[in-house]
Simulated scan of single mutants.
Amino acid sequence: MSGVAVLGYGGIAASAHLPAYEQHGIGVVGVCGRPERTADVLERFPFVGRVYDDVGDLLSDPEVRVVDIATGPEGRVALVRRCLEAGKHVLAQKPVTLDAGELPVLEELVRDASRRGLRVAVNHNARWAPPWRSASLLLREGRVGEVVGVTHVHDKALPPLTGTHFDRVEHMLLTDYLLHWVDITRMWLLDGSAEGQGEVVNVIALDSRLPGQPADSLNPWSATIVMQARSGATATIRIPGSGVATTPGCAFWVHGTTGTLRGSVLLDSDRLSLDDGTAEEQLPLTGAWFVDGFAGAMGELLTAIAEDREPENSLTSAIASLRLMFAARDSAAQGGTPVTPLPTPLPTTPLPTEDAG
């Protein structure tokens, strides 16, 4: 029994968190959510132990070691604090907050968790999407030399947005949807650079409404983020709009001084190749972002707890990605004015290396 309890039972918990934990043998003590939603939890997921009446009931259960906070962003920071005060490790959904004013609170929670001997991770599950994960491991091995550029192109339709709560989030593509892309790009710039040189020092972003976009949609459907690292390396993340494609996917390139990684994620487009200038090798991949990435995020936290170390997807790491997200939002709000992110401490412990195959 892994001692995991899921707090919040919305669409993502039902479609990704619990299926991932069931498939990968991660024991779930119980689930807490709105009664009208949790009525069928035990029938749909027989491996779940119980349904909690409320948050207090969950936090007082001695069998719960780790709380997977799968609620919406409002109030999420307060829930992290409550879990720590109850002596529980935490995996929090991303983004941990949409309020830049809560960053100092998050930094204090990092210190509080350390004082209590607890671990807080963030569900940046895309880091374990097979093409992205393999790319990260190859970069750590130095297989393309030093990174000089990262490019992402969102070549697929946007998910349904109009009329949803996501559409009411200001600059939603920049402050929620693209956070996965911002986070993995930040990691690749760090993984593929000399210490300190991969830190992003400049962010430019634009978002805009497009021809054909429904009149009642609130958010722009196009967004572009450009980041510059201290080394001079640059990264671009682009959603040209809700794409029309017979073979949709999200293509990416990582160019380095000695090689190039090319790949794609999502919608059965998963692929990754390594080109060293003499030959291009197609690399084997297994699994998929949905739902294996969710098991990867929780599995990294559970492994870190067992090994008494900080998880790779730690709250400290997530704060660094949030700083870039807020910089992109501020740049777009100013019509694309360059924004320097707030300084972020660099990791002080090496990340684990796995077999990239």
Results as ranks from 00 to 15, higher is better:
residue 188 W to Y: 15
residue 143 R to M: 07
residue 198 G to L: 08
residue 279 A to G: 04
residue 280 E to W: 09
residue 221 W to D: 09
residue 222 S to G: 12
residue 238 R to Q: 10
residue 172 M to I: 00
residue 222 S to L: 03
residue 213 Q to P: 03
residue 153 V to R: 15
residue 274 L to R: 05
residue 240 P to I: 14
residue 179 L to W: 05
residue 146 E to I: 08
residue 158 L to E: 11
residue 225 I to H: 05
residue 156 K to V: 00
residue 277 G to D: 04
residue 217 S to N: 08
residue 207 D to K: 02
residue 267 L to N: 11
residue 242 S to P: 07
residue 288 A to I: 10
residue 257 T to L: 01
residue 143 R to H: 03
residue 285 L to M: 13
residue 176 D to Q: 10
residue 235 A to Q: 10
residue 277 G to E: 06
residue 265 V to L: 14
residue 274 L to Q: 06
residue 260 T to L: 14
residue 281 E to P: 00
residue 233 A to Q: 07
residue 211 P to D: 03
residue 259 G to C: 09
residue 168 R to L: 15
residue 151 T to G: 09
residue 190 L to S: 07
residue 234 T to V: 14
residue 151 T to V: 09
residue 247 T to A: 15
residue 272 L to R: 10
residue 282 Q to N: 08
residue 171 H to P: 02
residue 246 T to G: 15
residue 187 M to N: 03
residue 240 P to F: 11
residue 165 H to T: 09
residue 193 S to F: 06
residue 225 I to M: 07
residue 162 T to K: 08
residue 192 G to V: 00
residue 172 M to W: 08
residue 206 L to K: 06
residue 182 V to S: 05
residue 227 M to R: 05
residue 265 V to C: 09
residue 233 A to C: 06
residue 254 V to E: 01
residue 194 A to L: 14
residue 235 A to M: 09
residue 170 E to G: 09
residue 288 A to T: 15
residue 253 W to T: 15
residue 183 D to T: 04
residue 152 H to A: 00
residue 168 R to I: 13
residue 231 S to I: 03
residue 152 H to D: 11
residue 207 D to R: 00
residue 228 Q to R: 15
residue 205 A to H: 04
residue 275 D to N: 02
residue 167 D to G: 10
residue 162 T to N: 01
residue 196 G to N: 04
residue 180 H to P: 04
residue 241 G to T: 04
residue 156 K to C: 10
residue 144 V to E: 08
residue 263 G to F: 07
residue 241 G to S: 04
residue 174 L to W: 10
residue 199 E to D: 12
residue 240 P to V: 14
residue 206 L to E: 15
residue 246 T to E: 15
residue 245 A to F: 05
residue 208 S to I: 01
residue 233 A to M: 07
residue 287 G to H: 07
residue 280 E to D: 13
residue 254 V to K: 01
residue 272 L to F: 13
residue 145 G to R: 05
residue 165 H to Q: 11
residue 174 L to N: 09
residue 158 L to Q: 13
residue 215 A to I: 00
residue 237 I to H: 12
residue 186 R to T: 13
residue 159 P to Q: 11
residue 284 P to K: 08
residue 243 G to P: 01
residue 286 T to L: 13
residue 186 R to W: 04
residue 144 V to M: 06
residue 142 G to W: 04
residue 242 S to F: 01
residue 266 L to C: 03
residue 191 D to M: 01
residue 230 R to Y: 08
residue 204 I to L: 12
residue 273 S to F: 12
residue 146 E to K: 12
residue 218 L to W: 05
residue 198 G to A: 08
residue 171 H to S: 14
residue 230 R to K: 14
residue 286 T to A: 15
residue 163 G to E: 02
residue 229 A to P: 02
residue 173 L to D: 06
residue 271 R to P: 03
residue 273 S to G: 12
residue 205 A to E: 07
residue 266 L to P: 00
residue 234 T to S: 15
residue 160 P to V: 00
residue 158 L to F: 05
residue 265 V to D: 03
residue 233 A to L: 08
residue 174 L to S: 09
residue 269 S to R: 09
residue 210 L to M: 11
residue 142 G to I: 00
residue 251 A to H: 13
